[in-house]
Simulated scan of single mutants.
Amino acid sequence: MKKVAFIFPGQGSQKIGMGKDFFENSDIAKDMISKASERLGINFEKLLFEENDKIGQTEYTQPAILLVSSIANAIFKETSNIKPEFVLGHSLGEFSALVSAGAIDYLDALELVHKRGKFMNDACAGSGAGMMALVGLDDEKVETLCKEQREKGLKVWPANYNMDGQLVLAGLKADLESLIDTFKEAGAKRAIVLDMSVASHCELLQSAVENLRPYLEEFLIDSFEVDVISNVTAKAYNTKEEAIDLLSEQLINPVKYKHSIASKDEDVDAFIEFGNGIVLKGLNRKITKKPTLNVSDMTSLKKTIEALNE
């Protein structure tokens, strides 16, 4: 039997209609969405399946993505006896990974990330925060440029190490915009300010750390069924104490996604992405030669299980 890792996407993977095929064809999905709506006082059927503005607001985006990922993973577990060697997620996806690992109940996780989104939004409110996608520069060059600009008083930091030649920066939107030409002169093929009002994984979220920590202590349990790979260290952890520290630090430190995949690549034969879309599958094509399967609806679930049993 193939050795696999379960991986979970973060913000940016959301889309109206995600999870609908699961909802229409699985009692597990219906039950999880009903319980989620009751727990948070959010109508998740409307949030997920009907046109609305909330899906793009981080306090709603985060639980929506986690719910769909957790549904996909729960249906897979019900259908297959394949266990992961480890689990990991991209940013928000690390919380979905914790659900999969048994370290937190999915309903508690939904409340936790709903609050996380609020705390992140509050930390950046009125600051002019934003994020930028950079393509075509190596990590060291970007780190050096950001450090030089911070020494000049600008607020810019590397936030997501997605794959070689693709980073996302966080900071003040005006500062990021002012550096577009600087990055292009340094060799960037693209430098695009994203349509976001939150600066994830940088020092601007310090207040969110203090607000989130008590809820991490309340909701996490010391019962990991499998190792989780940390976004902060790209190393495995499996205790509540470690999780509280690492998930707090995750808010103000960059996501080391490509490092996480590369560091554990030899331990598995394939990766399985759970949730809407194939964002991580796309990144993995540039990071690893191992295949990445996905479970985003009932059809892809069937194809993935067939591929694993070949």
Rank of each mutant, 00 (worst) to 15 (best):
G277A: 10
I278N: 14
M196C: 08
I278W: 09
N238G: 15
S207C: 08
S197H: 11
A188L: 07
L212M: 08
H259L: 10
D269P: 08
D222G: 09
I244A: 05
I261R: 02
E210Y: 15
D267V: 00
E185V: 07
L212W: 01
T239E: 04
R213V: 14
F271E: 02
K281E: 11
E185S: 14
V279Y: 04
P214W: 05
N253T: 08
D245L: 12
S263L: 11
S207D: 14
D245P: 02
V255F: 05
I192R: 01
N284W: 01
V228L: 14
G282K: 09
Q250I: 00
D227L: 08
A262Q: 13
F224D: 10
A234I: 01
K256M: 11
A208C: 13
N231H: 06
D222R: 07
N284S: 04
A243V: 04
A208W: 02
I261N: 02
E217V: 02
L251T: 00
S248E: 08
R213Q: 14
K264S: 10
E210W: 10
D245N: 13
A186N: 10
N284Y: 00
V268Q: 01
V226M: 10
L194S: 07
E217M: 11
D195T: 00
S248R: 05
S263H: 11
V232A: 11
Q250K: 06
G187L: 13
I272R: 05
D269I: 04
V255S: 11
S207Q: 09
R285H: 12
S260W: 01
M196L: 13
S200F: 14
S260L: 04
G275L: 11
N231Q: 08
V226C: 12
I252V: 15
Q206E: 15
L212T: 04
S260E: 02
F224S: 09
L280Y: 01
E185K: 15
D227I: 00
E249M: 14
V268I: 15
E217T: 01
E273W: 01
E203N: 11
N211V: 00
V209I: 10
E203H: 07
L194I: 04
A270I: 00
V279F: 06
N253G: 02
L204V: 00
D267E: 15
L251F: 06
R190W: 06
E217R: 10
L251W: 03
S260D: 03
F224G: 12
A234W: 01
I192G: 03
A234Q: 05
D269H: 02
L247F: 14
A188H: 05
V226N: 10
T239C: 09
D195S: 13
K258L: 12
D195P: 07
Q250H: 14
T233S: 15
D245I: 06
D267C: 03
S207N: 11
F183N: 09
I278M: 12
